[in-house]
């Protein structure tokens, strides 16, 4: 399949998931919810397993928590302002933090709900739908062009939830090198353009 056709298929898929999302929000439609589950549950499990390999019960718990938040927060999701995939990612990230906090019974930790809620509820952003999908494509293309060493550090930060210190210890690299790889990757992905 060519790049164009592939992008088309991805955006068709996203559009049909968006329709499901609207049915969940407006009609509390469980069939539509089941379709969202079929699409996102395997991704969410993979996301959880990236951080805790082999921990299937935790992965299942994350799926359940995220999908229930999807059901509860469907009315707050605004398709004009954010991409559904990105919204699901922010829910997954927040749930993962929450689950880790709850499993660590003795740590007296901060309640993360308030810290990340503004992002979950997605206050109005500057992006219109067309811009959103263009950005999405440029990120995808950008990630493919990243040097392996920068891609690896990004993956560890985002998927494995590691700090710069942890990554520096694991890869036996100076802390400054880890930080500059993240910075270079951001630069290549054009995060640095604004401001």
């Amino acid at each position: 399949m060519g790049k164009m056709a592939e992008n088309q298929a991805t955006s068709d898929k996203l559009a049909s998931l968006g329709v499901c999302m609207r049915r969940v929000a407006e009609d509390r439609d469980k069939h539509a919810f089941a379709k969202l589950f079929d699409h996102y549950a395997p991704q969410l499990r993979a996301y959880s397993l990236a951080r805790e390999p082999g921990a299937d019960p935790i992965a299942d718990e994350l799926v359940q928590e995220v999908m229930i938040r999807v059901w509860l927060k469907a009315g707050k999701y605004n398709a004009r302002l954010s991409n559904l995939n990105t919204w699901i990612f922010t829910l997954a990230r927040n749930c993962r933090i929450d689950l880790m906090r709850r499993s660590n019974r003795h740590a007296n930790t901060i309640n993360p709900t308030d810290i990340f809620s503004q992002i979950e509820d997605d206050s109005p952003g500057p992006f219109q739908q067309a811009q959103i999908s263009r950005i999405e494509e440029s990120i995808k293309a950008g990630l493919e062009k990243l040097p392996q060493e920068q891609f690896e550090v990004l993956t560890r930060v985002y998927l494995e939830g590691k700090s710069h210190q942890q990554i520096s210890a694991e890869l036996k690299l100076p802390l400054g090198t880890v930080k500059s790889r993240v910075r270079l990757a951001m630069k290549k992905l054009k995060v640095l353009v604004t401001r």
Binding site: Q43, A46, S82, F89, Y158
Partner: peptide, 19 residues
């Protein structure tokens, strides 16, 4: 919001694990 999109794209690149 841009950084969250990077996270979301990375998540989609993972090999799905069937539920």
């Amino acid at each position: 919001r841009y950084l969250d999109r990077i996270g979301s794209t990375l998540m989609q690149k993972l090999k799905p694990s069937p539920a």
